[in-house]
Design a protein around this nucleic acid. Structure first.
Lengths: 163, 163
DNA sequence: TATTGTTATACTCTATAACTATA
DNA sequence: TATAGTTATAGAGTATAACAATA
Protein backbone atom coordinates (compact mmCIF):
# COMPACT_ATOMS: atom_id res chain seq x y z
CA UNK A 1 0.00 0.00 0.00
CA UNK A 2 1.38 3.37 -0.99
CA UNK A 3 1.52 6.33 1.34
CA UNK A 4 -1.30 8.05 -0.50
CA UNK A 5 -3.72 5.13 -0.40
CA UNK A 6 -2.89 4.64 3.26
CA UNK A 7 -3.89 8.22 3.92
CA UNK A 8 -7.16 7.75 2.08
CA UNK A 9 -7.94 4.53 3.94
CA UNK A 10 -7.11 6.27 7.20
CA UNK A 11 -9.90 8.77 6.67
CA UNK A 12 -12.40 5.94 6.35
CA UNK A 13 -11.19 4.05 9.37
CA UNK A 14 -13.28 4.26 12.54
CA UNK A 15 -10.90 5.53 15.18
CA UNK A 16 -7.90 7.75 15.52
CA UNK A 17 -7.63 8.22 11.77
CA UNK A 18 -5.30 5.24 11.34
CA UNK A 19 -5.54 2.43 8.82
CA UNK A 20 -5.90 -1.07 10.20
CA UNK A 21 -5.97 -3.62 7.36
CA UNK A 22 -4.19 -6.40 9.26
CA UNK A 23 -6.36 -5.83 12.32
CA UNK A 24 -9.68 -5.73 10.48
CA UNK A 25 -10.46 -9.41 11.00
CA UNK A 26 -9.01 -9.65 14.52
CA UNK A 27 -12.07 -9.65 16.74
CA UNK A 28 -10.08 -8.88 19.88
CA UNK A 29 -8.94 -5.59 18.39
CA UNK A 30 -12.42 -4.63 17.21
CA UNK A 31 -13.84 -5.40 20.65
CA UNK A 32 -11.14 -3.30 22.30
CA UNK A 33 -11.85 -0.36 19.99
CA UNK A 34 -15.57 -0.54 20.65
CA UNK A 35 -14.85 -0.82 24.37
CA UNK A 36 -13.10 2.55 24.31
CA UNK A 37 -16.55 4.11 23.92
CA UNK A 38 -18.25 2.10 26.65
CA UNK A 39 -15.27 2.48 28.98
CA UNK A 40 -15.48 6.26 28.68
CA UNK A 41 -19.19 6.12 29.43
CA UNK A 42 -18.63 3.88 32.42
CA UNK A 43 -15.96 6.17 33.76
CA UNK A 44 -18.14 9.24 33.49
CA UNK A 45 -21.39 7.67 34.70
CA UNK A 46 -20.19 5.22 37.36
CA UNK A 47 -16.48 5.21 38.16
CA UNK A 48 -16.14 8.93 38.88
CA UNK A 49 -19.45 9.68 40.60
CA UNK A 50 -19.70 6.41 42.56
CA UNK A 51 -16.05 5.55 43.08
CA UNK A 52 -16.56 2.07 41.71
CA UNK A 53 -14.69 0.04 39.07
CA UNK A 54 -16.09 -2.20 36.35
CA UNK A 55 -15.57 -5.41 38.30
CA UNK A 56 -17.29 -4.01 41.38
CA UNK A 57 -20.28 -2.81 39.36
CA UNK A 58 -20.62 -6.13 37.56
CA UNK A 59 -20.49 -8.03 40.83
CA UNK A 60 -23.35 -5.93 42.18
CA UNK A 61 -25.43 -6.47 39.04
CA UNK A 62 -24.79 -10.22 38.98
CA UNK A 63 -25.57 -10.58 42.68
CA UNK A 64 -28.80 -8.69 42.15
CA UNK A 65 -29.80 -11.03 39.32
CA UNK A 66 -28.57 -14.16 41.10
CA UNK A 67 -29.53 -14.13 44.77
CA UNK A 68 -27.38 -16.29 47.05
CA UNK A 69 -24.68 -16.56 44.40
CA UNK A 70 -21.32 -17.83 45.67
CA UNK A 71 -17.96 -16.14 45.37
CA UNK A 72 -16.75 -18.99 43.19
CA UNK A 73 -19.58 -18.50 40.73
CA UNK A 74 -18.89 -14.78 40.57
CA UNK A 75 -15.21 -15.42 39.93
CA UNK A 76 -16.02 -17.72 37.04
CA UNK A 77 -18.65 -15.43 35.52
CA UNK A 78 -16.29 -12.45 35.64
CA UNK A 79 -13.16 -14.37 34.64
CA UNK A 80 -11.48 -13.09 37.78
CA UNK A 81 -9.23 -15.18 40.02
CA UNK A 82 -10.55 -16.34 43.43
CA UNK A 83 -8.11 -14.16 45.42
CA UNK A 84 -9.25 -11.08 43.54
CA UNK A 85 -12.94 -11.85 44.03
CA UNK A 86 -12.26 -12.04 47.75
CA UNK A 87 -10.63 -8.61 47.56
CA UNK A 88 -13.51 -7.05 45.62
CA UNK A 89 -16.08 -8.55 47.99
CA UNK A 90 -14.10 -7.14 50.91
CA UNK A 91 -14.31 -3.66 49.40
CA UNK A 92 -18.01 -4.00 48.58
CA UNK A 93 -18.73 -5.32 52.07
CA UNK A 94 -16.81 -2.48 53.70
CA UNK A 95 -18.87 0.02 51.73
CA UNK A 96 -22.04 -1.67 52.95
CA UNK A 97 -23.21 -2.80 49.51
CA UNK A 98 -23.02 -6.59 49.88
CA UNK A 99 -23.24 -9.11 52.72
CA UNK A 100 -21.63 -12.53 53.00
CA UNK A 101 -23.32 -15.41 54.81
CA UNK A 102 -22.11 -18.98 55.30
CA UNK A 103 -24.10 -21.67 53.55
CA UNK A 104 -25.94 -23.99 55.91
CA UNK A 105 -25.62 -26.93 53.56
CA UNK A 106 -21.90 -26.50 52.83
CA UNK A 107 -19.95 -24.42 55.32
CA UNK A 108 -17.23 -23.74 52.77
CA UNK A 109 -19.56 -21.66 50.58
CA UNK A 110 -20.23 -17.95 51.02
CA UNK A 111 -23.60 -16.69 49.81
CA UNK A 112 -23.34 -13.11 48.59
CA UNK A 113 -26.36 -10.81 48.74
CA UNK A 114 -27.09 -7.12 48.18
CA UNK A 115 -27.90 -4.71 50.98
CA UNK A 116 -30.54 -2.03 50.51
CA UNK A 117 -27.81 0.50 49.79
CA UNK A 118 -26.22 -1.89 47.31
CA UNK A 119 -29.52 -2.32 45.52
CA UNK A 120 -30.01 1.44 45.31
CA UNK A 121 -26.49 1.91 44.01
CA UNK A 122 -26.64 -0.72 41.29
CA UNK A 123 -30.06 0.49 40.14
CA UNK A 124 -28.74 4.02 39.90
CA UNK A 125 -25.69 2.88 37.93
CA UNK A 126 -27.66 0.69 35.54
CA UNK A 127 -30.04 3.54 34.81
CA UNK A 128 -27.19 6.00 34.19
CA UNK A 129 -25.39 3.54 31.91
CA UNK A 130 -28.53 2.80 29.95
CA UNK A 131 -29.17 6.48 29.31
CA UNK A 132 -25.59 7.30 28.32
CA UNK A 133 -25.15 4.26 26.11
CA UNK A 134 -28.49 4.89 24.45
CA UNK A 135 -27.26 8.32 23.45
CA UNK A 136 -23.85 7.12 22.32
CA UNK A 137 -25.33 4.34 20.19
CA UNK A 138 -27.79 6.56 18.38
CA UNK A 139 -26.04 5.72 15.11
CA UNK A 140 -27.21 2.12 15.50
CA UNK A 141 -30.86 1.26 14.98
CA UNK A 142 -32.70 -0.71 17.62
CA UNK A 143 -32.47 -3.78 15.42
CA UNK A 144 -28.74 -3.31 14.99
CA UNK A 145 -28.24 -2.95 18.73
CA UNK A 146 -30.21 -6.13 19.38
CA UNK A 147 -28.24 -7.91 16.67
CA UNK A 148 -24.96 -6.73 18.19
CA UNK A 149 -25.91 -8.06 21.63
CA UNK A 150 -26.97 -11.37 20.11
CA UNK A 151 -23.71 -11.76 18.18
CA UNK A 152 -21.66 -10.87 21.26
CA UNK A 153 -23.57 -13.53 23.18
CA UNK A 154 -22.76 -16.08 20.51
CA UNK A 155 -19.11 -15.16 20.72
CA UNK A 156 -19.13 -15.24 24.53
CA UNK A 157 -20.58 -18.74 24.47
CA UNK A 158 -17.34 -19.90 22.84
CA UNK A 159 -15.74 -19.48 26.26
CA UNK A 160 -16.49 -23.04 27.31
CA UNK A 161 -14.77 -24.40 24.21
CA UNK A 162 -11.84 -22.02 24.35
CA UNK A 163 -11.10 -22.98 27.96
CA UNK B 1 -38.01 -12.74 39.73
CA UNK B 2 -38.38 -15.86 41.84
CA UNK B 3 -35.52 -18.15 42.72
CA UNK B 4 -36.80 -20.82 40.35
CA UNK B 5 -37.13 -18.60 37.29
CA UNK B 6 -33.70 -17.17 38.04
CA UNK B 7 -32.26 -20.68 37.92
CA UNK B 8 -33.95 -21.39 34.60
CA UNK B 9 -32.71 -18.14 33.09
CA UNK B 10 -29.22 -18.91 34.33
CA UNK B 11 -29.08 -22.04 32.21
CA UNK B 12 -29.80 -20.02 29.10
CA UNK B 13 -27.30 -17.31 29.83
CA UNK B 14 -24.05 -17.33 27.87
CA UNK B 15 -21.34 -17.37 30.48
CA UNK B 16 -20.66 -18.74 33.91
CA UNK B 17 -24.24 -19.97 34.25
CA UNK B 18 -25.44 -16.73 35.87
CA UNK B 19 -28.50 -14.69 34.97
CA UNK B 20 -27.90 -11.15 33.80
CA UNK B 21 -31.23 -9.39 33.15
CA UNK B 22 -30.10 -5.91 34.26
CA UNK B 23 -26.90 -6.23 32.28
CA UNK B 24 -28.46 -7.47 29.05
CA UNK B 25 -28.70 -4.04 27.47
CA UNK B 26 -25.44 -2.69 28.84
CA UNK B 27 -23.10 -2.87 25.89
CA UNK B 28 -19.98 -2.43 28.00
CA UNK B 29 -20.77 -5.64 29.87
CA UNK B 30 -21.51 -7.59 26.69
CA UNK B 31 -18.25 -6.39 25.15
CA UNK B 32 -16.34 -7.40 28.27
CA UNK B 33 -17.89 -10.87 28.23
CA UNK B 34 -17.07 -11.38 24.57
CA UNK B 35 -13.56 -10.10 25.22
CA UNK B 36 -12.97 -12.93 27.70
CA UNK B 37 -12.81 -15.26 24.69
CA UNK B 38 -10.50 -13.10 22.61
CA UNK B 39 -8.32 -12.26 25.60
CA UNK B 40 -7.76 -15.96 26.27
CA UNK B 41 -6.85 -16.49 22.62
CA UNK B 42 -4.46 -13.55 22.66
CA UNK B 43 -2.80 -14.81 25.80
CA UNK B 44 -2.28 -18.27 24.39
CA UNK B 45 -1.26 -17.22 20.86
CA UNK B 46 0.71 -14.04 21.48
CA UNK B 47 1.30 -13.01 25.09
CA UNK B 48 2.80 -16.29 26.28
CA UNK B 49 4.83 -17.35 23.22
CA UNK B 50 6.01 -13.86 22.25
CA UNK B 51 6.13 -12.11 25.61
CA UNK B 52 4.05 -9.23 24.32
CA UNK B 53 0.94 -7.50 25.66
CA UNK B 54 -2.13 -6.31 23.78
CA UNK B 55 -0.97 -2.72 23.56
CA UNK B 56 2.44 -3.72 22.22
CA UNK B 57 0.91 -5.98 19.57
CA UNK B 58 -1.56 -3.33 18.46
CA UNK B 59 1.20 -0.75 18.17
CA UNK B 60 3.13 -3.08 15.88
CA UNK B 61 0.07 -3.75 13.72
CA UNK B 62 -0.86 -0.07 13.47
CA UNK B 63 2.71 0.94 12.65
CA UNK B 64 2.79 -1.68 9.93
CA UNK B 65 -0.43 -0.35 8.43
CA UNK B 66 0.54 3.30 8.90
CA UNK B 67 4.17 3.90 7.99
CA UNK B 68 5.78 6.94 9.60
CA UNK B 69 3.01 7.21 12.16
CA UNK B 70 3.77 9.46 15.12
CA UNK B 71 3.67 8.53 18.80
CA UNK B 72 0.86 11.02 19.31
CA UNK B 73 -1.28 9.34 16.65
CA UNK B 74 -0.66 5.94 18.19
CA UNK B 75 -1.63 7.22 21.63
CA UNK B 76 -4.91 8.56 20.29
CA UNK B 77 -5.73 5.46 18.25
CA UNK B 78 -5.07 3.19 21.23
CA UNK B 79 -6.65 5.46 23.84
CA UNK B 80 -3.39 5.37 25.77
CA UNK B 81 -1.79 8.36 27.48
CA UNK B 82 1.34 9.94 25.95
CA UNK B 83 3.62 8.87 28.84
CA UNK B 84 2.56 5.27 28.42
CA UNK B 85 3.05 5.28 24.66
CA UNK B 86 6.60 6.46 25.28
CA UNK B 87 7.08 3.54 27.67
CA UNK B 88 5.70 0.98 25.20
CA UNK B 89 7.81 2.36 22.37
CA UNK B 90 10.85 2.13 24.64
CA UNK B 91 10.16 -1.55 25.23
CA UNK B 92 9.49 -2.25 21.56
CA UNK B 93 12.63 -0.36 20.54
CA UNK B 94 14.74 -2.25 23.06
CA UNK B 95 13.51 -5.54 21.61
CA UNK B 96 14.47 -4.36 18.15
CA UNK B 97 10.96 -4.33 16.74
CA UNK B 98 10.47 -0.61 16.06
CA UNK B 99 12.69 2.36 15.29
CA UNK B 100 12.11 6.03 16.07
CA UNK B 101 13.31 8.80 13.78
CA UNK B 102 12.91 12.56 14.13
CA UNK B 103 10.73 14.26 11.56
CA UNK B 104 12.63 16.59 9.24
CA UNK B 105 9.63 18.89 8.87
CA UNK B 106 8.79 19.12 12.58
CA UNK B 107 11.55 18.18 14.98
CA UNK B 108 9.08 17.55 17.77
CA UNK B 109 7.57 14.56 15.97
CA UNK B 110 8.87 11.00 16.19
CA UNK B 111 8.18 8.80 13.18
CA UNK B 112 7.78 5.18 14.25
CA UNK B 113 8.60 2.37 11.85
CA UNK B 114 8.92 -1.41 11.98
CA UNK B 115 12.23 -3.24 11.75
CA UNK B 116 12.51 -6.46 9.78
CA UNK B 117 12.20 -8.42 13.03
CA UNK B 118 9.20 -6.37 14.02
CA UNK B 119 7.53 -7.10 10.69
CA UNK B 120 8.18 -10.82 11.08
CA UNK B 121 6.83 -10.78 14.61
CA UNK B 122 3.62 -8.93 13.84
CA UNK B 123 2.94 -11.11 10.79
CA UNK B 124 3.42 -14.24 12.87
CA UNK B 125 1.07 -12.92 15.59
CA UNK B 126 -1.62 -11.82 13.14
CA UNK B 127 -1.57 -15.22 11.49
CA UNK B 128 -1.79 -17.07 14.83
CA UNK B 129 -4.65 -14.86 16.01
CA UNK B 130 -6.54 -15.28 12.75
CA UNK B 131 -6.32 -19.07 12.98
CA UNK B 132 -7.30 -19.29 16.64
CA UNK B 133 -10.15 -16.80 16.37
CA UNK B 134 -11.44 -18.52 13.25
CA UNK B 135 -11.72 -21.74 15.22
CA UNK B 136 -13.30 -20.10 18.27
CA UNK B 137 -15.89 -18.28 16.17
CA UNK B 138 -17.02 -21.34 14.27
CA UNK B 139 -20.49 -20.91 15.77
CA UNK B 140 -20.84 -17.67 13.82
CA UNK B 141 -21.33 -17.79 10.06
CA UNK B 142 -19.08 -15.73 7.83
CA UNK B 143 -21.92 -13.27 7.34
CA UNK B 144 -22.44 -12.99 11.09
CA UNK B 145 -18.76 -12.36 11.68
CA UNK B 146 -18.72 -9.64 9.04
CA UNK B 147 -21.86 -8.12 10.53
CA UNK B 148 -20.30 -8.17 14.00
CA UNK B 149 -17.20 -6.34 12.79
CA UNK B 150 -19.36 -3.80 10.99
CA UNK B 151 -21.49 -3.13 14.07
CA UNK B 152 -18.42 -2.81 16.28
CA UNK B 153 -17.03 -0.28 13.82
CA UNK B 154 -20.24 1.70 14.03
CA UNK B 155 -20.03 1.70 17.79
CA UNK B 156 -16.35 2.63 17.77
CA UNK B 157 -17.11 5.62 15.56
CA UNK B 158 -19.11 7.07 18.43
CA UNK B 159 -15.78 7.82 20.12
CA UNK B 160 -15.54 11.29 18.60
CA UNK B 161 -18.97 12.22 19.96
CA UNK B 162 -18.44 10.61 23.36
CA UNK B 163 -15.20 12.53 23.86
C1' DT C 1 1.57 30.04 23.79
C1' DA C 2 0.63 25.56 22.05
C1' DT C 3 2.29 20.98 20.88
C1' DT C 4 5.32 16.63 20.98
C1' DG C 5 7.46 13.77 23.67
C1' DT C 6 9.61 12.42 28.01
C1' DT C 7 10.63 11.48 33.18
C1' DA C 8 9.11 10.51 37.71
C1' DT C 9 5.79 8.52 40.39
C1' DA C 10 1.67 6.69 42.36
C1' DC C 11 -2.37 4.10 41.74
C1' DT C 12 -5.42 0.33 40.03
C1' DC C 13 -5.97 -4.12 38.53
C1' DT C 14 -4.38 -8.88 37.97
C1' DA C 15 -1.70 -13.24 38.75
C1' DT C 16 0.69 -16.86 41.48
C1' DA C 17 1.78 -19.43 45.60
C1' DA C 18 0.74 -20.92 49.95
C1' DC C 19 -2.54 -21.38 53.57
C1' DT C 20 -7.15 -22.56 56.34
C1' DA C 21 -11.43 -24.73 56.73
C1' DT C 22 -14.73 -27.92 55.14
C1' DA C 23 -16.33 -31.84 52.40
C1' DT D 1 -7.99 -35.97 48.28
C1' DA D 2 -10.73 -32.19 46.47
C1' DT D 3 -13.08 -27.77 46.91
C1' DA D 4 -14.27 -22.76 48.71
C1' DG D 5 -12.28 -19.10 50.34
C1' DT D 6 -8.46 -16.32 52.07
C1' DT D 7 -3.70 -14.01 52.80
C1' DA D 8 0.55 -12.30 51.11
C1' DT D 9 2.99 -10.61 47.46
C1' DA D 10 4.68 -9.53 43.01
C1' DG D 11 3.74 -8.01 38.49
C1' DA D 12 1.30 -5.71 34.63
C1' DG D 13 -1.07 -1.82 33.19
C1' DT D 14 -2.63 3.02 33.66
C1' DA D 15 -3.00 7.74 35.51
C1' DT D 16 -1.41 12.54 36.76
C1' DA D 17 2.03 16.17 37.26
C1' DA D 18 6.01 18.36 35.89
C1' DC D 19 9.43 19.02 32.51
C1' DA D 20 12.29 19.79 27.90
C1' DA D 21 12.36 20.78 23.13
C1' DT D 22 10.27 22.69 19.21
C1' DA D 23 6.78 25.26 16.67
Amino acid sequence: MTRKTAAVAAERTPVGRLAEPGLHDIMGYQLAQASVVTNAIFRRCVAEPEGMGKVEFTILALVQANPEVSARQLAQALAVTPPNIAMWLDKLEQRGWVARTRSTRDARVQHVSLTAEGTDTVNRCVQALHAAEHEAMATLSAAEQAMLVELLHKLARARSRAA
